[in-house]
Amino acid sequence: MDDLTLAGVTLGSRLILGTGGATSLHALEQAIRASGTELVTVALRRVDPVGGRAAGGLLEILERCGVGVLPNTAGCHTAVEAAKVAHLGQEAFDTTWVKLEVIGDERTLLPDAVELVPAAERLVADGFTVLPYTSDDPVLARRLADVGCAAVMPAGSPIGSGLGISNPHHVRLIRQAVEVPVILDAGIGTASDAALAMELGCDAVLVASAVTRAADPARMAAAMRHAVIGGRLACEAGRIPRRFHALASTPDDGRPAL
């Protein structure tokens, strides 16, 4: 499979793994290795040694796996808050990349477009490589690309829902609407969803819950790895047109008279 170029950086895998939802760091490490990913997301939360969130444990695993770190702004509801978390992520992880999330609704965790665009614009101005989690709205995707985002990451369906891609047509329209990479983010439930995303023309897929909350995360991570490769190849290969009736693949010519 061809490499993915994201903001000038070449990635050998078109699968990005979210680390949220894993039952243990050990299970997460196994999933990361099985996925073949080169980039994983992390959140920023309070150091809480009593509650079990010591500083450093997760980062050590990511370093051992040799994957890049993409900090997110999960849980932010305003542009101001998201920008601050992005800057804190830069401090903690020494990266200017950010998966920008500005949530507008608690039940669906869908993005707040009105806050998202100015947040993206501000962070681009601050020198960040901004990868915004967005809805499946082609116009919003174009607006995000216009303000300088390095990619757009439309939700297939709500985060953690496993509902797959609820509007494949919009995902196709987004692919046509922007020049930057399109990364299907959120809603993937199983391998066929990831393959479909790639067949629709997405450049990469970001998966978290579908892997980390699977009964066997490492096995699902391997499934996603193959699904993304298969979907990408199928997209490039060019599928046959859909037909209403059958079209024989075996020729009539030479058929014996019996």
């Binding site: 979210g18 680390t19 939802g21 997460l28 920023l44 939360r45 150091v47 450093g56 770190v69």
Partner: peptide
């Protein structure tokens, strides 16, 4: 004061 570190997150 907020002292923050990496946590699992999508």
């Amino acid at each position: 004061i907020e002292v923050l570190t990496a946590a699992q997150g999508g």
